[in-house]
Amino acid sequence: MSAKLTIGPILFHWSVDKKLDFYKKIADETDVHTVYLGEVICSKRAVFFDQHYEGVADKLKRAGKKVVYSTLSEVLIKRDRKIIHDFCSMSEDEEIEVNDASGLLHISGQAHRLGPMMNVYNEETLKYLVSKGAYHASLPCELPRQSVEVLAGVAAKIGVSLEMQIFGRIPLALSARCYHARAHKLSKDNCRFVCEQDSDGMLLKTLDNKEFLAINGIQTLSYNFMNLAHELQELEQLGVEYFRLSPHSNDMVTTARVFNQLMKQEITAQEALVQIRDTGIDEPFANGFFHQKAGHQWVINRN
């Protein structure tokens, strides 16, 4: 078993050109194993990029990357439900990552992946879903080390691969309401796609002007950037094999290169942190969840 990097779905509403440019670079200039495609936050955004997935997927596959389609994390109205149905009805040659129980209904019995929004918190849930066709699970970001260890032990026994996010803002909550629209005094149905203005989310500060959270449409994310550079080796030893980089507008090519070097132990975690900061990240790094501390915290870990 050797550790592999993955690129998570783009959570934010980037323009078509920005997305095409991003995936071109990922295909041509990075050594990542898997790339997740698909709109996982808001079905209203989905139409803009629908026609480009096939081309992007071809390009990525030609560059030797595995392509997986991620489904919407919150499914509510008819349009959302149709998207889930269509995704889950794709050819069995395509790999699907399910992020909501609506998808499970369609795909149970067929091979599928479980996304980080699927609430796989324990070995019983993992075993049950694996018995229904799941073969790969991305674990929730808030799982502490002790639980990851137990899950990894069970996953190894039943032949399931595990993945964890190691870089990027942490998905913290979903709502039916669009908070981007609300900030602009609009509603979800009449949102004018104001979320496109914030390529890494809209900053929320506390009333005493402390950076707090980031808004991405119906999603709330951390302000701090998760960075598990110090924990990478330990995660690998526990049995986690895939490490997800969540796309941001910093230099993701360099970010992927640095994490690859770290996995090969060509650089130290401390060197990796410095180099990743230089890709254009001003926000603090956070690793608290893994250490069973508040998620925004940075726990000094000398591994």
Binding site: E74, L172, A173, L174, G288, Q292, G295
Partner: peptide, 14 residues
């Protein structure tokens, strides 16, 4: 927030 899908308290308090 959609209940069962909110980690805000954990992010702030552990």
């Amino acid at each position: 927030m959609v209940e069962g899908r909110c980690s805000l308290t954990n992010y702030i308090t552990g």
